[in-house]
Design a protein around this nucleic acid. Structure first.
Lengths: 337, 337
DNA sequence: GAAAGGTGTCGAAGCGCTTCGACACCCTAT
DNA sequence: ATAGGGTGTCGAAGCGCTTCGACACCTTTC
C-alpha cells in the first residue's frame, strides 16, 4: 500500500506539501505540484479513506436510505438511486446504501459514527419516525418525498398535488365528467406515504372546482386485483369514461381488461397514467401520462445536499412541476348516450 | 461527539479495555464488561468509523457495483441490491453503491483507498474488463454472473444453461416440436452478458438432443418490438407452438398479441418465461416459469464474500439450480393439423 | 511452598492523513 | 538599505481507534 509519506519522499517534499497539492488548500508552486503529481501517478497512490476521514472529520460519503418494500414502482427507486450515485460521484462523494429495515437506528448509527457526512431519505411517510432524529442532528439531509411538517427539513419531490390536478384538468378539457382513480396498493395509503394522498387531494380539489365526479379505488398490481377493482368501479359508476392510474403495475391489466370488455381506448374511455415515460411508451396503448422525473429528483437531492455540506443554502422544499404528455390513450369523451 | 476515551473515563477503565469489550478479542470480567456496556449506553457512544478503519485496516464496507444501464430487468437488480444490503448488515457490513459508470477505475479507487474491504460485481460480461484488476488484487470479490474464464474468481449465478435446458424439456414433454425463443434486447447479446447466451446454449443443446427445432430472436421490450418479432417468427416458422421468453418486458406484449391473433394460451401455444415469480403470477395468464432467484443470489454473494474475508473458503463457482413452476401458460401441444 | 500457567487490565505506539503555526525566501515600497 | 507583505514549504500535533507486550494477581500442580 502506497502512503502519502512515500509519495512525499519520492517527490522530495514533505508530507504536508503533498497533502496541500491534493487538497489545493494552500498555494503550491507549479514545479513542486507537477513533481508531486508525477510521483502520485508513478506510484499509483490513492489516499486512504479511513485516515482521511479521521483527520478531516469528513468521510465524503452520502448515505442513501431506500425502502425495503417493493410494493411501489421499483424502477423509479432504482433510477433515483442510480442518479444519486452518479451525481454524487461528480461531486466527489460516494454513496452508502441503507435499507429501510434498520429504520431510525440506521440514522443514528450513521450520523454518530461519522460513516457518512449526509443522508438522503426515500419513501418518506407523512409522519416519518426518522424526522425527529434528522432535526436533532446537525448533519445535513435531504428527503425525497414530502412529510406533513417540513420545518427544518429540505425536501425534493414531484409536485403530486399539481400532478393530480393536471390529470383531471386534461380529462375535463376533453369533456369527461366521471373520473375513476386507480390508486396505489392499500398498504401504501395505510402507511401514509405522502405522494399517493397528495395526488388524490390535488385531483379531488381540482375536480370539485371543475364539477367532475371522482371515484377513488386503491389497487394492488396484477390482473386479478385490477379486474376486481374495475368491476367495482363500473358497477358503482357506469358512466365513468376517464381513468387516472397511479399504480404502474395496474396500467397494463387495465388496458387489457378494457379491451376485453369492448371499451376502446381512447374512443370510449380515456386513460391518464402517472408513471415514468418509458412505461408510458412501452404500453400496449401509448399512454398519455405525467412523467415521474426520477433522475431529476435524484440529481436535485444530491445537489441540494452538496450545497448544504458546503454551507450554502438552507432548508428548502423543491417541488418539481409535473408535465403531462398527450399520447394515444386520451381523447374526447363520447357523446352521452 | 462521544469517544472511546470518554467511555473509558466514565466507566473507570482504560481505553483499551473498552476496545476489548467492543471487539471481544480478549476476555473481560463480567463486572467490567457490564460497567463498560452501561457507560456506552448512557453516553450513546458509537465508534468512529474512520478511526476504526485506520487503526484496524478494515472498513467493514462491501462495495456493490451495479449496472448503469436499465435495458435489463431492473427489479431483479434492485432485489439483488436490497438482498445484498440486508444480508451485509447481518454480518456487520455496510454497502457502498458503485455504478458501472466509472468502470475499472472504480475498482482501483475503492481497493486502493481502503474504502471497502471487498466487492460484489453485477452485470458481468463474458470478457469483463474489470476481471484482470480483480485477479491482480488480494481484495476478496464475488461476481454475480459468470464470465468465460473463472480462474481465481468466485461467482454466484443462476445456472442459466440448465435453465434453458429445463424450459425446452418442459415444452418437449408436452409434445411441442417447434420452439421460438424471445431473447433479451440485441444490446444485451452484443455486450456479451453471459446469462443470455448461456440460456440459449443450454436450450439449443437440449433441443438438439430431443430433436426439437429452435428459432431464436432477440427482442426489445414493448408492444411494437414484440409485434414485429412475433410476425417474423410466425412467418418463418408457422408451426411454432412453444415460446420461451427471457425478456420480461416482452412477456405481456406477447400474451396480448397472441390473444389478439386468436391463439389461445395454453390450448394453441405454450409460453414459458424466465422471470421472477412475482412477474409470472401477476401476468394476464399465470405463467409457467423458471424463477430468477434474485434474493438468493444477493444473499449467497454476501455470504461467500464474508467467508472469504474471514479467511474461509476459496474461489468457487456457485450455480443455483433452476426451478420450473408449472402454471397456466403451458399445456399439451395441439394435434398436428 | 515454589514454579508454572491463566486471567484481566493497562500503557503506549502507531495507523495515514490534515492542518496549524513557523519560517525562509523574494519582491515591492519607502 | 530596510521594513513589510506575499508565497511556498516544512515540522509537529493530533484525529479516535486497535493491538501488542507487560504485568499484577490468582489458581493450580507437584
Amino acid at each position: 500500500m502506497v502512503t502519502l509519506a512515500e509519495v512525499a519522499q519520492h517527490a522530495g517534499v514533505s508530507a504536508s506539501t503533498v497533502s496541500y497539492v491534493l487538497s489545493g488548500k494552500r498555494s503550491i508552486s507549479a514545479t513542486t505540484r507537477h513533481r508531486v503529481e508525477q510521483s502520485i501517478r508513478e506510484l499509483g497512490y490513492h489516499p486512504n479513506a479511513g485516515a482521511r476521514a479521521l483527520a478531516s472529520n469528513r468521510s465524503n460519503i452520502i448515505a442513501l436510505m431506500i425502502p425495503l418494500r417493493t410494493d411501489m414502482y421499483v424502477p423509479v427507486m432504482m433510477e433515483i438511486a442510480i442518479a444519486v450515485a452518479t451525481t454524487a460521484r461528480t461531486h466527489g462523494y460516494d454513496v452508502l446504501l441503507l435499507t429501510g429495515e434498520e429504520g431510525p437506528d440506521a440514522v443514528r448509527r450513521v450520523t454518530r459514527s461519522g460513516l457518512a457526512d449526509a443522508m438522503i431519505l426515500m419513501d418518506v411517510e407523512l409522519e416519518d419516525e426518522r424526522l425527529p432524529l434528522l432535526r436533532g442532528t446537525d448533519q445535513p439531509s435531504v428527503l425525497i418525498g414530502l412529510p406533513t411538517d417540513t420545518t427544518g427539513l429540505t425536501c425534493v419531490d414531484l409536485d403530486f398535488t399539481a400532478t393530480g390536478a393536471l390529470c383531471v384538468e386534461h380529462l375535463a378539457s376533453l369533456g369527461h365528467r366521471d373520473i375513476a382513480v386507480i390508486g396505489e396498493a392499500p398498504a401504501v395509503y395505510e402507511r401514509h406515504t405522502g405522494f399517493a394522498e397528495r395526488t388524490l387531494d390535488g385531483l379531488r380539489a381540482r375536480a370539485r372546482e371543475l364539477g367532475l365526479r371522482v371515484l377513488h379505488r386503491p389497487c394492488e398490481g396484477g390482473y386479478d386485483a385490477m379486474a376486481a377493482t374495475l368491476a367495482r368501479i363500473l358497477d358503482e359508476r357506469p358512466a365513468t369514461t376517464g381513468f387516472v392510474v397511479q399504480n404502474e403495475s395496474a396500467v397494463e391489466p387495465l388496458l387489457a381488461l378494457l379491451r376485453q370488455q369492448g371499451r376502446a381506448v381512447p374512443e370510449d374511455v380515456s386513460v391518464v397514467a402517472v408513471c415514468p415515460d418509458q412505461v408510458a411508451v412501452q404500453a400496449s396503448v401509448r399512454l398519455t401520462s405525467v412523467a415521474i422525473p426520477a433522475q431529476e429528483m435524484g440529481r436535485h437531492a444530491v445537489e441540494r445536499l452538496v450545497a448544504k455540506l458546503d454551507g450554502l443554502g438552507g432548508d428548502e422544499v423543491v417541488l418539481l412541476a409535473p408535465e403531462l404528455t398527450v399520447r394515444a390513450s386520451t381523447g374526447p369523451a363520447p357523446a352521452a348516450s
